[in-house]
Every structure is written in structure tokens, then in C-alpha cells.
Amino acid sequence: MTEYQSQELSLDGADASFLRRPARAVENAARDTTAESGEAGSVIRSKDFTLFYGKTIGVKDITMDIYARTVTAIIGPSGCGKSTFLRSINRMNDLIPNIRTEGFLTVNGQNVYDKRVNLVNLRQQVGMVFQKPNPFAKSIYDNVAYGPRLQGVHSRSELDSIVEECLHSAFLWDEVKDDLRKSALALSGGQQQRLCIARALATQPRALLMDEPCSALDPIATARIEELIAQLRNRYTIVIVTHNMQQAARVSEHTAFFCLGELIEYDLTSRFFTNPSNKQTEDYITGRFG
């Protein structure tokens, strides 16, 4: 407890990146140093994190570290709080009235529920991909350029290069490069989801949260997204919530199992699916649950 607190406070002073708006270059440099400082270092840490919807408990006493440049899968039955936890990381739960939190949830050492946190900077550093593809009703180009424009990038050439880079990263460039002015809504579901990933990448986040990104897609599109995740794992910290255990086993290095708002088991994926230490986990992954 004291360790977290002291770390949080010290980092607050040292690198208060959420509290002010860092220039893009500075931010890049900061990311690079973080990357250099240790591959296995945890980017997102949660300690006794509890979230209440009014009087109902959403998630309870979650303590887990999510490691940099790995893919962490969160599985669990519906209503177990995995999405709630995921959305707590970049405070998307703020849209819901009457939420209250206890404990600590830190991103790069900063408590995201600190009152001084600049939500805009937090969300630019922790990108998110949603269950249903939700591109804006704008052109493909404008969708990807939305984040950089918010960060104050307006130069045409710079935007062009960001868009191209992000679409490349999301394996979408070859499919849309001739028609960047086309409405994003004219794309297929799988393409839309990859566009959403490209859009999230365009703000140069440190971490990417994916909330069941494949549940609205067909198997082929799902395979492409999984392929994409595999490519991105070297550069980003990815947290993915999924209902599909095979998917979790395929894409992730770490897997966490949530049940009724609590973290039941969190381990390396290889161990998690072959040798679960918890009875509940075993029941769930073997299909005997509930």
C-alpha cells in the first residue's frame, strides 16, 4: 500500500504527463524511455481497486499488474466486471452517473482517479477499441486524423504521414489507399474495426484497450484482427476483453479470469489454460461453469 502511494506521489512530481499537455515530441521521447526502461515493467497497475455503481459493486478489490508490450486477455462470464475494469483504466466509466472508486489504478505510475488528471491526455495515452465498430460518419482520412487534430497537428503533410502509418499498422492501407475520402461507414464491419484500431493508434497511445473487438465480426474478419493484434503486441501494451477463450489463448501472453466482480486468477496464458490453479477457472475454461 505504502509502496504504491509513494510511487504514485513521486511520479506525480517527476512525470506529470496527465496533468499538463505534453508536446508530441516530448511524449514520444517519454514513451521511448519507458520502453527502454524495462520490457517487463508494468504499465497499468491496479491495487485493491473497487468500483461502485451507486450502491452496486462493479468490480471489487482488483489487484493486478499489466505488463508493457504484452497482450493481456481478460475473460469471464457476462456481468463479471471485465468491461467495467477495462473502461476504468481510461475512465470511460465517467459517462455513467454515480460511480465511485476505491483503491488505486495507475497508468505509468499515475493514479487515473486523481482529481488533477487531465482526461484528455489520459485517453490519448490509453486508446480504446469498442465492441461494435464505431467509426465517425466522416471520411476514412478524417477518422484517422481525428486524434492528431485534437492534439493540434494541422499540417497537411504531417497528417498524411500519420494517416498512412496508422493505416499500415492496422493492415488497412492496401484496401483503402485509393479512396481515403470515402465515408468510413461504407467499409465492411471488419474494415471498420481495423479503422477504429488505426484511429486509436493515431494518438500514439502507450496502451490499447480492446473491449470484445471481434464479437461483432465474422471469423475471417476476426482472424485479421487477431493477426493485427499479434503485430501490434511488440509496440503497444494491449488489454483485450473477450468471451472467446480460444481467442484469449491465441492472442495473449497473460490471461485474467474475472467472476462476479472479482479477479479469480491471473497468470501466464500458457499456464492459465493448461494448468489453472483455481477450481472456478478450471470449471469455466472447461465449460462446466454455471
Binding site: 470511460m92 459517462l95 485517453r123 480504446m128 464505431n134 485534437l150 486509436a200
Partner: peptide, 18 residues
């Protein structure tokens, strides 16, 4: 307007006004 749209914008770091 679907909440999706707003979530997408907020998740990209847009403020309420933007």
C-alpha cells in the same frame, strides 16, 4: 445519437465540447 459515437470521440481524447 448512439453513445458509441460519443465514446469513440472521448476515447480519442476529445473534450465534451469537441
Amino acid at each position: 445519437v448512439p453513445i458509441n459515437y460519443k465514446e469513440a470521440a472521448l476515447a480519442l481524447g476529445a473534450g465534451q465540447f469537441r
